[in-house]
Write a protein that binds this DNA or RNA. Structure first.
Lengths: 122, 122
DNA sequence: CGGGATCCCGATAGATACTG
DNA sequence: CAGTATCTATCGGGATCCCG
């Protein structure tokens, strides 16, 4: 956690994983980034599908989760420094390596939690 | 959530998974149950390895996580009704089907979070 | 032995308003 | 557009004591 990566804080990889993805949207954010960079607003609106009902997403929360993912080394933030602001988030190699794990989670979840048929969309 | 299963509350299987395994010990509890029934005390002491440092586990927390796992249909609680008390927890078929997913998580976590060499023990 | 009851605390998430 | 600031409600988790 010295600078941008939080590693080896646990001796158990499962416990480490738990902490890494704790937060309501982290897994879905990673998943939604698998096809390339996305902007803040795209991610936010993407999260609205799949949430139960009329959930709005507090900008604080999304911002903090993105920061945490970046601090974990799973994504990077690219600020174009223009007006109006344009910021892109994309997966790091480590983040990309994590996508297959989420794919497994999705497959299991679709079978046992929802019965959705795993279309392309998140 | 009517009785013992909490399903289809989300349209996104990833979001459903997030809620399902939220809680500090749920994944590890499931993992530790893969080889057969375990008693409350066995699970508790099993969790102490792999936690950072001198963490003790509040009985409230462990009890609540076990109840949640049972309510989700991943484990079952078997009370032998004897004195002194004896209670066993074991995986349901659904819970067993989840073990390979945790295995994937472990493999990824070992590679990117800890570098442990995935021995038999949890 | 396997918890429940109670108290406490930090972290998390929502709502709202504001800004460079 | 992409956040920050503030405030508040709720939750997760730890500590301690107790009981059948």
């Amino acid at each position: 956690m010295s600078k941008t990566t939080a590693k080896r804080l646990h001796r158990c990889p499962v416990a480490a994983f738990q902490k890494l993805i704790s937060g309501k949207y982290k897994l879905r954010l990673l998943w939604d980034l698998q096809d390339g960079p996305r902007r803040y607003g795209e991610l936010r609106s993407g999260l609205l599908r799949g949430a139960d009902g009329t959930a709005q997403i507090a900008p604080r929360v999304l911002s903090r989760e993105l920061k945490a993912l970046a601090a974990s080394g799973l994504i990077v933030r690219k600020d174009y420094g223009v007006v109006p602001p344009k910021v892109e988030y994309r997966l790091t190699p480590m983040g990309k390596s994590f996508i297959p794990v989420i794919a497994e989670i999705r497959k299991w979840g679709a079978r046992y939690l929802g019965g959705e048929q795993l279309s392309m969309a998140s």
